[in-house]
Amino acid sequence: MTPAEWQIVAFTAGMAVLSTALILVPGVTLAWCLARLRWRGKSLVETVVALPLVLPPVVTGLVLLKLFGRRGPLGHWLYSEFHLDIVFTWRAVALALAVMSFPLLVRTARAAIEEVNPTLEQMARTLGAGEWRVFFTITLPLAKRGLLAGTLLAFARALGEFGATIMVAGNIPGVTTTLSTDIYQLVQLGEDSHAWTLAGISLALAFAALWISERLQARSKI
């Protein structure tokens, strides 16, 4: 493996870890709100969150490009307030990965939280526990396997993201190139052997993520 290939692997894995870390707290919070609360506009939020699952990734990428470009509403604000550029930087990669893997995390986490018997949470309340304590001592430990599975699923999804990334972050070698965009590029250039090396690494990473998940889940079994 060349140093350039190592850089791409490290960059992609790093971006996947970052994007997963970014969505973890908001994703689990939203999953909890969807699983445990009744509120107006809930089904609308559910639909919007699920959209990246079914929308062509390039469309999601296009929406992000327009929102976060310097002339887009969010991009303009970020640039004028904080002098932050998003599109075609590493930040855009993290953003694209986060948006694309968010629905997987939310859906898995929501199912995990819904599986926790609400009577257990109610008993904790009658025993004087406030909502935070109920969540951290009852809901979270009982849903942890599902939450972990959701996190690893989101991470694995982020590792392989292509469509939204190439739209909003492009394919700038050393800056925004990820495993997927590089494989595409290499095949375009007829450098199949390099493409196969990276494809093998992708496989190894995905395999490792799922294997670790299995191991962790087996160990956490009560």
């Binding site: 018997n117 904790a124 309340r125 009658t126 004087g128």
Partner: peptide, 30 residues
């Protein structure tokens, strides 16, 4: 509910499955 200080024993007892007997009993003594 958490401020009424009632003791509730539900139909299937709803013991916290991840906590030991002692931790179940002591849960209310936070």
């Amino acid at each position: 509910a958490r401020k009424r200080n009632t003791g509730f024993v539900p139909q299937d007892y709803a013991l916290f499955p991840h906590l030991t007997v002692a931790a179940n009993i002591g849960y209310g003594l936070y």
